[in-house]
Simulated assay, not measured.
Amino acid sequence: MELAENALEAASAPWIGARDLAILLLLYGAGLRVAEALSLTARVLPLGATLRVTGKRNKARIVPVVPAVKEAIEAYVAQCPYPLSGDARLFVGARGGPLNPDLVRRSVAAARRRLGLPETLTPHALRHSFATHLLARGADLRAIQELLGHASLSSTQIYTAVDAARLLDVYRHAHPRA
């Protein structure tokens, strides 16, 4: 993920780059919202195969933690100069306090500009990419709904339109009679 690597390289300190990389991979790898990722506490450590996340309307859900995400978070924790235990936030700012969500958005925007990527690439777009890629690989819409923490299936169905448009494009380019 070029965006995450660029954010890592541009950080003011190695541990901050590791933190930003871990957050970006968590947004894409687990489909979290920025607020959900930043609300995680050190109680999630040590990481297992899943993570309990509290989303909108205090709704809890379980999401899988893929190896790349787990490794990135462990690398950040190993480098973080602040104690991470108990109810302390997992992701902290440069002075050890809670990390501001705007800092994550600004970090992504700066990396996006450096890479010449479109303005539509936002932290929330990583969550959308998570869902779209799962759907494209055959994941069940209900499973995606659960992973994203959507209360209604209609909120999740927007991804079928994206996937249908992609399939139609593939059809038009590949079918001899299209």
Results as ranks from 00 to 15, higher is better:
G97I: 00
Q79I: 05
E36C: 11
R43G: 11
L32C: 14
A10E: 15
D20Q: 12
L21M: 07
Y82E: 05
K59Q: 13
P101F: 00
S39W: 01
R106T: 08
A7T: 10
V77A: 10
L103E: 08
D20I: 02
E74Q: 15
A49F: 11
S107H: 03
T41A: 02
I73E: 00
K70T: 14
Y28N: 03
G93L: 00
L24H: 12
E74F: 05
P81H: 00
A30E: 05
V63G: 11
V66C: 14
A75G: 12
G97N: 02
V92G: 04
L27W: 00
N58I: 09
L8R: 14
R33K: 14
E9F: 05
P46Y: 06
G97V: 08
N58D: 14
R43E: 11
S39I: 05
Y76P: 04
G31R: 01
A30G: 15
E5K: 06
V44F: 02
K70E: 11
R95V: 07
P98I: 06
Y28G: 12
A88K: 12
T54N: 07
C80I: 07
A7G: 15
A18W: 01
G17R: 01
P83E: 12
E2T: 07
P46I: 04
P81M: 02
L3V: 05
D87M: 08
A42P: 01
A11K: 00
T54G: 09
G48I: 09
I16F: 00
A10G: 10
